[in-house]
Simulated assay, not measured.
Amino acid sequence: MIKKAFIVLFACFISTNLFADFKEGKKLFDQKCAQCHKGYISFKKLKENFYERNNTLLNLKTPTENMLAWAIMDSSRKIGDPNDEDMRTVEIEMYLKSYLANPDLNNSICDKSALKYYNKKEPIQISDEEAELLAQYFMGYKKDRLKNMPKPKKTLTKNIKEDRVLKKAQSEGKHIIVYATSKTCYFCKKMEKEVLSLDEIKNKMDEDYIFLKIDVDYESLPFNLKKHFKGMTPTFFVLTSAGELLNIYPGAWVKNDYLQILKENL
């Protein structure tokens, strides 16, 4: 009898769960959570904020909505089994109710490197229905995000014709530098302002190199460099006039170090 009653109760719970709506969950989040948790911020900018600028760029006191969704659904400390959606919903509901009732940062599933910047959260009691709606919201967040904001398709920029670049490099006796950058990269902007914009640097590059700037968020790296790219911006690839890779320099460089890079590859 006990086993049968449990099955009936569990079936009723799952049946009720089917009525939970992602849109209603979003509405609840906007009403009760958005006043503390900011909306979507790209992970590229979040990484820059926390790992490169010690939270001085965004000054976040709580995780953003996409950080919460990622922590719950995709992080190494994610909640539940991705292969069992029904049970996972139950586990997320239980986690939300438990953590919000006793919000201890030491028990948080959020990125530990960001926790030190967050304010201590006051306990909040939420109902079973609210926990269910929020669970549905977080479970559907990624799919909804991708549907409404598809990732840009990367293409090789029309301004770069590899054969023409190689022909120019060979005729002028120059090497090639491919500069992998991003508009959201703080250290790229810093290096462009403090190093790459200097006349001494520009003259040296013009003398010995063909310089190609590639925004990796929207453009594919030429000369099959994608297989060597580790995702760090800035990264400088130095190639021969025949397009053969000589060296890779990830990270930003000060003037004298960058001049040394230009010299040691000749």
Rank of each mutant, 00 (worst) to 15 (best):
H37K: 07
P152L: 13
D206W: 01
Q136I: 03
D206R: 02
L212Y: 07
L246T: 07
P103F: 10
K204A: 04
W253E: 07
N107K: 15
C12Y: 01
T184E: 15
A101I: 09
R164F: 03
L46F: 10
E207N: 01
S75C: 08
T155I: 13
L166D: 06
A11S: 13
A114I: 05
N49I: 05
A252Q: 09
I109F: 02
N106T: 11
R53M: 09
K44E: 15
V216L: 07
C12D: 02
L58C: 00
K230L: 14
L115M: 11
D30M: 13
A114N: 05
K255T: 13
D215E: 14
M67S: 07
K193H: 10
K45F: 11
C36T: 01
M232W: 12
I126V: 06
Y186L: 08
E162T: 02
Y141I: 05
K263L: 05
K158M: 11
L156G: 07
D84P: 09
A169R: 00
F50M: 14
I176K: 11
F6L: 14
N102V: 02
I261C: 00
K120L: 01
A252L: 01
G39P: 12
K78N: 11
G231C: 11
V165K: 04
T155H: 04
F229L: 13
K227M: 00
I79S: 00
N148W: 05
E172T: 12
E52I: 14
S113F: 07
I214Y: 05
A71E: 09
P82Q: 12
K147I: 01
D30W: 06
P123Q: 11
D208P: 03
A131L: 11
D30L: 14
V216C: 08
G140R: 00
G25I: 08
P63F: 05
L57Q: 05
A20E: 05
D217Y: 01
C33Q: 09
L212Q: 09
S197E: 02
K121M: 10
M205C: 03
I214E: 01
C12Q: 01
E194R: 05
W253F: 15
Y117F: 11
